[in-house]
Simulated scan of single mutants.
Amino acid sequence: MTAANGWTPVALSASIEAGTSAGTQIDGFEIVVWRDNSGKAHVWEDRCPHRGMRMSFGFVRGDHIACLYHGWQYDTGGQCRYIPAHPDLEVPATIKIPSYAVTERGGVIWTSLKETADALALPVVSDDVTPIRSLYIDRSIEAIAPLLACLPVDGADVTVELLSSGAVLFTSGAVKLLIAGQAIPPEKCALHIAAIGAVDASTRKQIAKWAENARRMIEAAPVAPIAKVA
């Protein structure tokens, strides 16, 4: 479950609402994931070029995001467009935040940490999904993949199908999940989990409970695969 040809999942689509931002990491590299007010997602380096403040601490206004420290505003391409202390200044083109390719698929926001990338490299999965949660685990992404097959939902048989190098299709009984893995710093990762299709509130609660139990079992597991648990 490593990045799919450079694409890495960074959040569930539903967790980043229009006009909001959130900071996260890819292998220790800090990024900000944000949506402008039209609903389009963006992924940038999480640093204002002025004094290094994290842009994820800032605020979104329309199609701009502003740094919390001095209010410098950046457009959706990362270009600084307005400096409150110098309102009449034509901002130099060199004041720009690195921005990266971003797309949404299967209810997940993906980035490639470069300006353009081939979306055909992303996993083929329906966009008819129900977001469950992003699960943060104190284990490496490499250690988790072989353990998923040992974590059934209510004792049902498990199959784990590799959709791409960044995601798997987890099936246990009637439960079918897209699980997209994000490496954060060493020995930490996030699993962004969405149920395929619409699920009712009871099933969603069941899956969320399974996910929390899976986190505990994975973190407690020895290096060798663990035995099946109900």
Rank of each mutant, 00 (worst) to 15 (best):
T2N: 15
A4G: 03
G6C: 08
T8Y: 13
A11M: 14
S13M: 06
S13C: 06
E17D: 09
E17A: 15
A18L: 09
T20V: 10
S21H: 02
T24V: 08
T24R: 09
Q25P: 00
I26G: 01
G28R: 08
E30A: 15
I31R: 02
I31Y: 06
I31Q: 03
V32I: 14
R35E: 01
S38M: 08
S38C: 05
K40A: 14
A41T: 11
D46L: 08
R47Y: 07
P49D: 09
G52A: 08
R61M: 10
D63I: 05
A66E: 10
A66D: 03
L68Y: 03
L68D: 02
L68K: 04
L68S: 08
Y69T: 00
H70S: 11
W72G: 01
W72F: 14
Q73H: 08
Y74Q: 03
D75V: 09
D75F: 12
G77A: 15
G77I: 01
Q79G: 04
C80L: 12
R81N: 07
Y82V: 00
P84C: 13
H86P: 00
L89A: 14
L89P: 00
T94I: 13
T94Y: 09
I95V: 15
I97F: 09
P98V: 07
A101G: 07
A101P: 06
V102E: 02
T103F: 14
R105W: 07
R105E: 01
G107I: 09
W110S: 01
S112Q: 06
S112C: 14
L113R: 12
E115Y: 08
E115R: 14
T116Q: 15
A117G: 07
D118H: 06
A119Y: 06
L120R: 12
A121E: 12
L122V: 04
P123T: 05
V124P: 00
V129A: 05
T130I: 12
Y136E: 10
R139F: 09
R139G: 02
S140V: 03
I141N: 02
A143V: 00
I144W: 08
I144G: 04
A145R: 13
P146V: 07
P146A: 11
C150V: 00
L151N: 04
D154S: 15
D154T: 06
D154G: 03
G155H: 08
D157N: 13
V158S: 09
E161N: 11
E161Y: 05
L162Y: 03
L163H: 06
G166N: 02
A167I: 04
F170R: 02
G173K: 09
A174L: 12
A174V: 05
A174K: 13
K176A: 14
K176I: 02
K176V: 12
L177M: 07
L178H: 01
L178K: 02
G181Q: 11
G181C: 11
A183G: 12
P186S: 11
P186I: 07
K188L: 11
A190R: 07
H192F: 13
I193P: 03
I196D: 02
A198D: 15
V199G: 05
D200Y: 08
Q206W: 03
Q206D: 06
Q206E: 13
I207L: 14
W210F: 09
E212C: 07
E212G: 04
A214Y: 05
R215N: 02
R216G: 09
M217F: 13
I218P: 02
E219S: 11
A220V: 01
P222R: 10
P222M: 11
P225R: 07
K228R: 15
K228G: 01
K228L: 15
A230V: 05
